[in-house]
Design a protein around this nucleic acid. Sequence first.
DNA 1: CACTTTTATGCACGCGCGTGCAAATTCCTG
DNA 2: CAGGAATTTGCACGCGCGTGCATAAAAGTG
Lengths: 337, 337
Amino acid sequence: MDEQSRETVTADDVALRAGVSRWTVARAFKKDGVISEKARAKVMAASAELGYVPDLLAASLASDRSNLVALLVDDFDNPHKLVMLERLTRILREAGYGTLLVNMLGESDAPEALLTASQRRVDAAVVIGTQFDEGIRRTALGAKRVKQLIIFARASTTPGTISIGCDDIAAMTEITRHLLGKGFKRPLFLAGPNTESTRLMRKDTFLSVWSEAHGAPPPSVIHVADYSMALACEAVTTYLSDLDETLRPDVIVCENDVLALGAIDALRHKLGLAVPAEVAVTGFDDVALAASPAYDLTTYRQPVTEMAHALVRVLDNGGRNATDVFLPGKFIKRGSA
Amino acid sequence: MDEQSRETVTADDVALRAGVSRWTVARAFKKDGVISEKARAKVMAASAELGYVPDLLAASLASDRSNLVALLVDDFDNPHKLVMLERLTRILREAGYGTLLVNMLGESDAPEALLTASQRRVDAAVVIGTQFDEGIRRTALGAKRVKQLIIFARASTTPGTISIGCDDIAAMTEITRHLLGKGFKRPLFLAGPNTESTRLMRKDTFLSVWSEAHGAPPPSVIHVADYSMALACEAVTTYLSDLDETLRPDVIVCENDVLALGAIDALRHKLGLAVPAEVAVTGFDDVALAASPAYDLTTYRQPVTEMAHALVRVLDNGGRNATDVFLPGKFIKRGSA
DNA sequence: CACTTTTATGCACGCGCGTGCAAATTCCTG
DNA sequence: CAGGAATTTGCACGCGCGTGCATAAAAGTG
């Protein structure tokens, strides 16, 4: 055992020890590298003895791939983000990608955040945000700074980006059919902020499916400024307090679980109404809390795992001929509707 | 305007345009670089025109700092993790650090996860996990692969690591005093898994402060295998169902909010007990849900922002003469106890 | 066994920037 | 305005590895 340890061991060290050239060492570590079994075995043995691991940083610099993807997030309040982060980091890591988590600090921070990511040569930037404007696209693609811009769990019509998400149309159609089947008459749709560039098809789908079945009048909609339980609670409380009791909705259809949980809190604790007896509620995402006896929320589970795999596929192809992907999830029927 | 755009613009391009050398360009981008104001202005102007941004990857390779820190997480179920991630990514980014989010897939994955991080030359690895064993330390420090190992929001006695967290002792003492003041007699402590290497002082503190005030018998303790609402709910249900009613605790002190929320669900929905009238509950962390009317949980807020700033300080010093940091948080009194 | 095909290996060059020091320039003082 | 101090700038070398091609070794053929 030579005592040159304690220091960074490079491919050269391994090459020396294995009696091959540095490039053979590199080949041994490439999964589909052309190399004889014998040589690879020698290299691997030497690497193990020396504790060698390829330096991904140097590799990124030399090649034009970093195997790094940036995850841009702007809403850390929704527990469902945690689920997405878990799945993405797990599956990306298993596929050999590292994940750079970038906090989009404010509304107009997206371009800056993207720049931060690009400085580390990410192979792709994945936006898991709720708000984001055109600026991000210009920064990303206009300056060629980021090779790929992927919108995760949202639909974006922005050209040059690709979206990977849940098939919201099928999902919301299923929810709506369920509600129609149960005979609800006066729904209220509770939506998040009304953004342009990236949006959910949930509201539109609900409105069209419902109207098609029921005709006029179209269901009412209220928007909450943010996907926050507290704000949703407040919005519902205000809206229902001002409303004549005979016009009270019999079901509140929410754009996601966070809003739904806030709505339930409002109904029960602010307005003294029973859920689902007096007003039913549905959500979207199936966060952990939705399953708790306190809420027992009927909702829809996004296929996060499959979405992450779809992302890996796009990355592995370097974005060549990639198209939007919208995958089916699963309707979760519980007690709230 | 020369039309060499579309391509990566390097410091050389900027140097050429600004009429200085490449190294002067580098200096202009170093916050405390020695450079004349005139030169810096020229460089900045040229950079702006060309859209130049320093390549952090190349910088990391050339220097021995990457300004990258790895966040190792193994528990994506606790919404409080999201708060920590938000604060850490925000504050680290503001301080010029990038964050690599690494999912510690399983119990024994810590060393592997650390290796993944080290391959990207992180300046430090920050463990925000609940479980982690000695292996991680050996991998990190033994092989000199990671310069610094920091345990966040936990106390670790492992030598060579530094801990940054909430002052659990002061915190739990305050909670306990509050409960003593309100005249509770039979507390039950609800704890998470019983790990060795990294742990919370909450349980020990509670037990000692309580015993000191009340003498024997010492409070009962139950452990839940995981920080999960569902498991906590189950554990509490089982425990209380088997218990003679006269021995029923009048307050359940929980190691964190997730356990507390599960406990409340158990009390209300499984056991039909009123909170806080029949059994009170306290938590720890002050997750968003704790403030909702559905739970209205008395808890303790960790100083996450300050903890993140403390982390930045350690990083900026390159870990020289760094010591453990435990900061005071804030007791949040609500209705549950 | 000579010769072609296939498979393995070696190597020059470059990725974009930091470090440490030497050379050049500017500033100041009497 | 000379002479030295202070400030500013330039540069050789290296960080660790990938790419593409040339060369060497092994395998196959008649």
